[in-house]
C-alpha cells in the first residue's frame, strides 16, 4: 500500500521528470550547422525540400489531403482534412529537430540540418 500523504519522493519524482524534459528541450536549441531542409514523411515515403524557397506542397496520405507551406525558412501545415486539426495548431517548424505531426494522416514534418540530399528530393 502507498502513502496517503505527500512524500519527499513525490517531489523528487516530479523534479526528475522536469529536469529530463528540460535537458531534452535544451538539446533541441543547440546551434545547428549547414542549410536547413524539410523532410516530409507520409504514407508514400520520405521527401526532402529546401527551406530557402517559399512554396506549397499538396499531398494525400492515409486518404487525408494536406497542404504544407514553406515560408520564410519555416514550414507548417496550412490545411488538413484530418478530423481534429491539431496539426494546424502546432505552429511552425524552423529549427533543426523541430517537428509537426498529423497523426491521423501519418504525416510528419521534420527540420533537418545539412542540405537536401538530391537523391531523395522531390520537385513540385
Amino acid at each position: 500500500m502507498i502513502s496517503k500523504k505527500r512524500t519527499w519522493l513525490d517531489i523528487i519524482i516530479i523534479a526528475i521528470a522536469l529536469v529530463i524534459s528540460a535537458l531534452l528541450i535544451g538539446l533541441k536549441f543547440l546551434p545547428s550547422e549547414g542549410d536547413l531542409t524539410l523532410s516530409v514523411i507520409s504514407e508514400g515515403g520520405e521527401s526532402e525540400y529546401s527551406l530557402s524557397e517559399n512554396r506549397e506542397i499538396e499531398l494525400m496520405s492515409n486518404g487525408i489531403s494536406l497542404i504544407i507551406r514553406i515560408e520564410n525558412s519555416s514550414a507548417y501545415i496550412l490545411s488538413s482534412e484530418c478530423p481534429n486539426g491539431i496539426c494546424m495548431k502546432q505552429g511552425r517548424a524552423k529549427r533543426a529537430g523541430d517537428t509537426v505531426v498529423c497523426a491521423p494522416a501519418g504525416v510528419a514534418l521534420i527540420i533537418k540540418s545539412g542540405g537536401v540530399s538530391h537523391g531523395d528530393a522531390v520537385a513540385g
Partner: peptide, 20 residues
Amino acid sequence: LFFGLRVASFCLPYLLIFGA
C-alpha cells in the same frame, strides 16, 4: 514506430512536462 525516432524525440520532452 510509426514516424521514426526523430519525431518521438521531439514529442517526448513536452510529453514528460505534461506528464509531470
